[in-house]
C-alpha cells in the first residue's frame, strides 16, 4: 500500500514535469507516452493522477471529443511559489495544531510559557 502511494506521489511529480514541459494541452495517452518508468505505467493510473491533479486545482481540463485534455493552471515557477507561500503560512499558523521542531509563539503565549517554565523549575 505504502509503495503504491509513494509511486503515486512520484508519478504526480513526473506527470506535472511533462505537462510543464509542453505548451499544448495533452491527453492522458500523450502523457503516458512521455512517461519513462519502470515498471511501465498503465493508462488508468495516468488518468487517476490527472483527475487527482484536476480536483486539487493544479491542472485544468477541457473536453475534446470523448476524451479530456489537460494543461497546468500555472507555470512551474508560479505554482511552486504560490504553494511555498501557502505552506509557510500554514507552518507558522499557531491555530493549525501542527507539530513543529522549532515553534514560534505569539506574545500572550510567550508570557504563558514564561510563567509555566518558572513554575516547573521551582
Amino acid at each position: 500500500m505504502t509503495a503504491e502511494r509513494r509511486g503515486m506521489g512520484e508519478l504526480e511529480a513526473e506527470v506535472m514535469s511533462i505537462l510543464w514541459g509542453h505548451d499544448d494541452w495533452m491527453t492522458p495517452r500523450e502523457v503516458l507516452e512521455q512517461l519513462d518508468s519502470d515498471p511501465p505505467i498503465v493508462y488508468s493510473t495516468v488518468m487517476t493522477i490527472l483527475r487527482r491533479l484536476w480536483k486539487k486545482g493544479t491542472v485544468d481540463r477541457r473536453r475534446v471529443g470523448k476524451a479530456y485534455t489537460y494543461h497546468p493552471v500555472k507555470g512551474e515557477g508560479e505554482q511552486t511559489a504560490e504553494r511555498m507561500t501557502q505552506i509557510l503560512d500554514a507552518a507558522e499558523d499557531p491555530e493549525g495544531a501542527l507539530t513543529h521542531f522549532l515553534a514560534g509563539l505569539d506574545a500572550p503565549r510567550r508570557r504563558q510559557l514564561r510563567k509555566l517554565l518558572d513554575r516547573s523549575r521551582r
Partner: peptide
C-alpha cells in the same frame, strides 16, 4: 495546506 504535493 501544509502537506507538500509530489511535485513540490
Amino acid at each position: 495546506d501544509a502537506r507538500a504535493e509530489g511535485w513540490l
